[in-house]
Amino acid sequence: MPMRPFWLEQALAAESCAPCEPLPGDTRADVCIVGGGYTGLWTAIMLKEQNPELDVLLIEADICGAGASGRNGGCALSWSAKYFTLERLFGVEEAVRLVKESERSIHAIGIFCEQYGVDADYRLDGTLYTATNRAQCGSTDAVIAALERHGINSFTQRPVADVQRMAGSRKHLEGWFSPAAASVQPGKLVRGLRRVALQLGVRIHENTAMTGLEEGKPAGIQTPHGTVRADRVVLAMNAWMARAFPQFERSVAIVSSDMLITEPRPDLLDQIGLTSGVTVLDSRIFVHYYHNTPDGRIMLGKGGNTFAYGGRMLPVFDQPSPYAGLLQHSLSEFFPAFAEVKVEATWNGPSDRSVTGLPFFGQMSAHGNV
């Protein structure tokens, strides 16, 4: 059995439900979704909310949340910092709309959790984009000015003393704060989505990998023990797309994000002033990011350490982080008070970095149904 990252292990320990049975044989569905992470589960839920009669079936190769959704940094952020890319790709009007929608979606996560009683440690406490060395200073100015010009800027520059106090660290040399961001326990969120999907009547089969895709109307999703015939198919596999479909090898780079989490030390969090659920990111290409947890831990991560070529899923992605020493060094640099605090766990995982840094959506079948 693969090692479960800290977030997912914590979420699984808090629930009592058994895994959903693997698909036992051939079946038929209106919609078949491949992938039981945020993308797949939220798609299933929204389809059922709009049309409860729709027969939606979801297959997942492992258990729901075993991919990126159950092990990410838990920083719920908008697309405002990507404004220039959005404008280049889609023009001003659509870029403005997407920034607004992306900020609205942060609030929508909280509304969803409240509506369905999902306890995902959702805290709408904002984000700080900071500089941690002289070279990073000023790197946010241009995008803030563009957001300001278009009337969509939610960021304010804070005095350095405020930034250091809110972020709990003297390492920050400047910072911009936006209230339109949240932190979550990502494993609890994805397992909550699974529960809601089941409640709404989505048929879920875990430990059911897609082994092939037959084009046609209906399309056929092959699995080890049967084929799903479906009028429409949604492929929601993210980093795993490049392995399943060679045409994605050049569209996404598989790159790790490595994380650690400390034992609970709420006393030290009080001492350094990191007492809200604010998410903090520096201005590197592959950023450091961190936030605390309601039970008094610090989660700190860094992107971009391991690259996997040709869509390969490396064994290291399901093991403790090989960069634990680097993470621990960063932890003690940001928080000298935590230098001797026990690290409860480290982990990493594959994330799909697209050429633009944005997700992309598209049609994959000549029949227009995938």
Rank of each mutant, 00 (worst) to 15 (best):
residue 112 F to S: 04
residue 158 R to C: 14
residue 103 E to D: 10
residue 127 T to Q: 10
residue 149 R to L: 12
residue 165 R to S: 13
residue 160 V to T: 12
residue 95 A to T: 01
residue 107 H to G: 11
residue 174 E to N: 03
residue 93 E to L: 09
residue 106 I to M: 07
residue 105 S to L: 15
residue 81 A to T: 15
residue 124 L to V: 02
residue 138 G to T: 09
residue 168 G to R: 00
residue 109 I to P: 01
residue 126 G to L: 02
residue 100 K to R: 09
residue 112 F to K: 11
residue 176 W to H: 11
residue 71 R to I: 06
residue 85 T to M: 14
residue 142 A to L: 07
residue 68 A to T: 11
residue 124 L to D: 13
residue 141 D to F: 00
residue 133 N to T: 12
residue 156 T to K: 14
residue 111 I to G: 11
residue 107 H to S: 12
residue 111 I to H: 14
residue 108 A to G: 08
residue 153 N to R: 07
residue 123 R to F: 04
residue 128 L to A: 04
residue 112 F to T: 04
residue 64 C to F: 05
residue 72 N to G: 07
residue 111 I to F: 12
residue 85 T to I: 13
residue 74 G to H: 01
residue 123 R to S: 13
residue 175 G to Q: 04
residue 175 G to S: 07
residue 114 E to R: 15
residue 169 S to R: 03
residue 137 C to H: 05
residue 94 E to K: 07
residue 163 V to R: 01
residue 74 G to R: 06
residue 133 N to R: 02
residue 94 E to P: 06
residue 99 V to N: 00
residue 69 S to A: 11
residue 171 K to E: 08
residue 130 T to S: 10
residue 77 L to K: 12
residue 116 Y to G: 05
residue 104 R to Y: 13
residue 141 D to Q: 04
residue 106 I to R: 05
residue 110 G to M: 03
residue 109 I to S: 08
residue 134 R to E: 15
residue 81 A to Q: 15
residue 129 Y to N: 11
residue 105 S to K: 08
residue 87 E to T: 11
residue 151 G to D: 07
residue 133 N to P: 10
residue 137 C to F: 05
residue 138 G to A: 06
residue 150 H to A: 07
residue 72 N to C: 10
residue 154 S to H: 12
residue 153 N to S: 15
residue 154 S to Y: 09
residue 97 R to T: 09
residue 71 R to N: 08
residue 175 G to N: 06
residue 149 R to E: 14
residue 111 I to L: 14
residue 97 R to W: 07
residue 135 A to Y: 11
residue 89 L to C: 10
residue 173 L to G: 01
residue 71 R to V: 04
residue 79 W to Q: 09
residue 97 R to L: 05
residue 118 V to I: 15
